[in-house]
Design a protein around this nucleic acid. Structure first.
Lengths: 220, 220
DNA sequence: GTATGCATCTGTGTATACATTAACGCATGA
DNA sequence: TCATGCGTTAATGTATACACAGATGCATAC
């Protein structure tokens, strides 16, 4: 049943609290404090923090506590640059892999869901489906390490998105792009898949960074 | 003096032992065993292992010990794909940054050192200077996260290189490429810097993967 | 000879204790 | 008022203890 160690529990709990904003960016938390809150001893909390530190979600500073890493607009630019390159590579590789329509079903579904969510003005559902599309795209690229790096970066993006989702223009062009990428992959056109996705991400990057800078979220 | 924690000591010591082949890929080691060898208790060893695990150098499997991650030819292909994309981006960004000749001194030195090493047939010195060139290139790209990801990937490459260095053809084209990249950066030509470096890395990838497959280093 | 179950044993996951050392406040002096 | 130094306090880094669970080997049954 409880086939889950305390370390794993601590990792999920801390992640959730960070994404929910319960542990705000820039805030410090003592190991003892978190241990008590999670109902376990310091040891698993420390190990969990170590893992989250490796993913850039927290920083452990001796005697100052575990700090929830703040993410500035400049940081987000860095992150998006990496995402752009790696996801585009994944798109190209996916196109080269000669997938069948069936293999691409998840992609198609995600696109449809985004359309639906957009029609209903349901931005949360849109964001969820968008995430799903990008995750699936990377998976199809068949590079386990790339997937891991991307997922770490995406975690950071998600933190920023929580606050910017309702400030940004409606993602209309976005779905056009997804469709082009999908079709390019379906017909094995690696260059188009790559370049379209690259432009897609770069546009998202510029929009988001501008938004963050404008609203001076210099350390969210 | 000893302003270095046991965890830090354990991390360096383990890294060194891994790179030196003293802890061979695929081998398992109990926490107690390593703790004794390093002259400390299990706690810092565990924490060090956790960090190295996040970098993909070891895997901790309950009750089976700490395994030194083996790297197959397929793994190396994955790793090089990531390196190729991210380093090329760094090259492009470096070109955009309008660096002065003085800023690029380290690059120039590395290239000169490679020339010298090649003339003396000193492959070790060549590899060291090559590493230096690539590290500096990434640094000039000014993306801290990218630098970290690349450095993790490069650690893996280094492990494979140790065994393949003396099997590969003399890296002659290599230095031509470096020179072109350098000049492109110097004159602010991002596209040439990017594309040249991209091709450079891809060629290295293909050569190395072929070499590894041929010699059936299926888990070194 | 092979499969199945059980007992043993050992390594890990976690809690806890403790020494160290950096941060903080206060007092002292300029 | 502000800087400097010292003592106190408290958080961490590390060691250690211990319970649990999974692996291993053996015995037994088929």
């Amino acid at each position: 049943m409880g086939a889950m160690s305390n370390v794993e529990r601590a990792v999920s709990a801390l992640r959730q609290m960070i994404f929910a904003g319960e542990l705000p960016p820039g805030s410090d938390h003592l190991e003892t404090e978190l241990a008590e809150k999670l109902g376990m001893s310091r040891t698993p909390v420390r190990e969990a923090a170590l893992m989250l530190q490796a993913q850039g979600l927290v920083e452990m500073r001796p005697r100052r506590g575990i700090r929830i890493t703040p993410v500035s607009a400049a940081d987000m630019a860095e992150i998006y640059d990496i995402l752009t390159e790696l996801e585009s590579l994944a798109a190209a590789r996916a196109a080269e892999a000669q997938y069948s329509k069936a293999d691409l079903a998840n992609l198609a579904t995600a696109i449809r869901d985004m359309d639906g969510a957009l029609a209903r003005d349901d931005l949360r559902a849109w964001a969820e489906a968008d995430d799903r599309f990008h995750r699936e795209l990377v998976r199809l690229g068949r590079n386990a390490r790339l997937s891991m790096v991307v997922s770490v970066m995406r975690d950071q993006v998600r933190r920023a998105r929580a606050t910017t989702l309702f400030m940004r223009p409606k993602p209309k062009q976005s779905n056009e792009d997804h469709r082009v990428v999908y079709q390019a992959i379906a017909r094995g056109d690696a260059k188009t898949a790559h370049d379209t996705h690259h432009a897609h991400r770069q546009a998202a990057r510029d929009m988001l960074v501008a938004l963050l800078e404008k609203h001076q979220f210099h350390g969210l």
